[in-house]
Nucleic acid binder design. Sequence first.
RNA 1: CGCGGGGUAGAGCAGUUCGGUAGCUCGUCGGGCUCAUAACCCGGAGGUCGAGGGUUCAAGUCCCUCCCCCGCAA
Length: 314
Amino acid sequence: MSLRVVFMGTPDYGVPSLEALIEAGYHVVGVFCQPDKPSGRGKKIVPCPVKQCALSHGIDVFQPVKTRVDGVEPLRALAPDLCVTAAFGHILSQEVLDIPRMGTVNVHASLLPQYRGSAPVNWALINGERVTGVTTMMTDRGMDTGDILMQREVEVLPGDNAGMLVDKLARVGAELLIETIRALEAGNCPRRKQDEGQASYFPLLKKEMGVMDFGKTAKALCDFTRGMNPWPGAYAGAYKVLEAEAEPWAGDEAPGTVLRADAKQGLWVRAGEGALNILRMQAAGGKPMSARDYLRGHQMEVGALIAPEKTDAE
RNA sequence: CGCGGGGUAGAGCAGUUCGGUAGCUCGUCGGGCUCAUAACCCGGAGGUCGAGGGUUCAAGUCCCUCCCCCGCAA
């Protein structure tokens, strides 16, 4: 007899796990996600990806404002054997955690205990990690502090940005989730406490954190660009930098100086060490395009600063 | 009705205010120069100006309708 499972998640990251549960034959008796909010151009209300997925499978959707308050009764009524969370965005109370007989399993996109927090993939990229991964863990009341069940490493490819890596980790996480649940059912799932000495926590990203600091090395700026895309984006003044490479450069220009800006050579900007070769970018109001395409139709002065003045943040 | 920018040659843009020969940078094709080149010189091809309707002697440009794209915001 298949387990009664309640899935909790909101963005794209959770969808593969939800689909995997359904495909594996578990009885997904309900899906929790955050309330719909007006979003997109024109303030339309668009259901979050997890909700869309749930509805397309005919699963009941619950959208409590605070799960630990108005989510308790609906959850209890579903009488789940197991809860699964993946980027749900709500902190669960002990009362909620006590409802499912087998507990609550979280699919986290990092190799815990490193990169606890809401934006593990972004931070792993920003910090230049070459390997990251996913972890299934027993959710407890802390922020990603529960016991580790299973982990799987994923190599970070040089071309990965946060969006691509999240997709990849979501798929790996979905596989690992099923493996984990099977082991839990069989009673032979590994389980170990997190080593607090090795733990690290990184905060949620905010829009204003996307401002590029050209005093950093070209490599760091390159990693930053990867980690901040597609959201919140890495900004150099009026330009959003989508993709860049680090290049060697010897010269005494000030960080942020435009070194090259033409359709043949591309757009190079002085970094604290080396130069940042901006490959893809997007001007305000414009479409994303390669820097070379942009320069065919726009003038940029070599020798000037790419971000001449602080864009009035906020 | 949340605010705003945009659709013109294969790519990126100007031209629209004030209607009157379709322009720039790059690519592409041909030729030349060069030890050589992503360099330079000469020449050519390539555009239903997002769609439809209207005004006009004349519409990329003015009026109306529609489609699509993007930034902010979330």
